[in-house]
């Protein structure tokens, strides 16, 4: 496990007896430190985004997010997410099925390989695709001859995003399906259901919350990925700029209100992600 925290139970306050309870003063101080730290590091930046976004008024805000370049960035980001997330979801289910339902040699190595993208700098995740498909890359000449573009175009952005979000669904499903074992599937198969039917009617209902949880995290990262996409995109305005790259350009041009307007859209998505994530945790606990 690197860079990923699996689905957990919603925290509840533990009841502690008086002997193992700290004095009131210490409790208050610790609570204050924790809340002050979170306010300074999490709440304040979030508030800044929305205040700066609306600093120059509602019209500037609307103009910023309806600018053709902004709209094309939003469209591109959505397109990338629509391709990336389902692919990694199918991979995640396949990988978890192979790893948890069967015994084979090298399983731990396979799990480590699936973990790799979490341990690697996003910049390197972009670099590797330049080395493969760039002008001087391994397939560079071949691609040029056939007039195909991968790097500095949509396929490159999709590949880099797939790379950085590859572990999310698999990482979520492996411990879950490991804990569930194979008994229910075996029962279904023994009773004559086909393999696919068993997966659909037995396995899928068991893993739906874990799957959804992985999807949500994968989706959030795919929308927001910056470093890897920045390397392979080529920053062509209105063409290969995703939302985070568009924010960077606006910010570097000192169009702060516009940059934060687009950033506020992404922040709303992030907040929705957190809410859905908590709902799933609650659901998983209560079913």
């Amino acid at each position: 496990m690197a860079g990923h925290i699996p689905l957990q139970q919603t925290p509840t306050t533990i009841k502690v007896t008086t002997v193992s309870q700290e004095p009131k003063a210490i409790r208050w101080t610790l609570t204050f430190i924790a809340l002050a730290f979170l306010a300074l590091f999490l709440v304040l930046p979030l508030v800044t985004i929305f205040i700066t976004a609306f600093q120059k008024g509602w019209e500037t805000y609307v103009a910023a997010i309806t600018h053709p370049d902004a709209l094309s960035a939003i469209k591109l980001t959505l397109l990338v997410v629509l391709i990336t997330v389902p692919l990694n979801a199918i991979f995640g289910v396949m990988a978890a099925w192979a790893i948890t339902k069967f015994q084979f040699k090298g399983k731990n190595i396979l799990i480590t390989i699936i973990d790799l993208p979490f341990a690697i700098s996003p910049v390197i995740a972009g670099l590797v695709f330049i080395l493969l498909f760039g002008a001087q890359g391994l397939f560079g000449e071949w691609l040029f001859e056939h007039d195909l573009k991968i790097v500095f175009a949509l396929p490159g952005i999709v590949l880099a995003t797939i790379f950085v979000t590859l572990p999310f669904v698999a990482r979520e499903l492996i411990p879950l399906m490991q804990a569930q074992g194979t008994a229910e599937e075996e029962a279904s198969l023994t009773l004559g259901a086909s393999g696919f039917k068993t997966f659909l009617l037995v396995t899928l209902p068991n893993i739906k919350w874990g799957l959804l949880y992985g999807l949500i995290l994968c989706n959030a990262r795919a929308i927001g990925e910056f470093g890897a996409v920045s390397v392979v995109s080529g920053h062509i305005r209105g063409m290969t700029n995703t939302m985070p790259l568009h924010i960077e350009i606006l910010y570097n041009e000192y169009q702060f209100s516009a940059a934060f307007a687009v950033a506020s859209l992404m922040s709303v998505l992030a907040i929705i992600t957190l809410i859905v994530k908590n709902l799933i945790e609650w659901k998983a606990k209560h079913t």
């Binding site: 919603t10 930046p45 979030l46 934060f260 994530k277």
Partner: peptide, 25 residues
């Protein structure tokens, strides 16, 4: 509950957005 949910914000918020917000602050 809200504070607990908020802890995951850095996982959900795009890094570029966090970057410009922190720089402005």
């Amino acid at each position: 509950r809200i504070v607990d949910g908020l802890v995951d914000l850095p996982f959900a918020l795009p890094t570029a957005v966090a970057g410009i917000a922190l720089t402005t602050l």
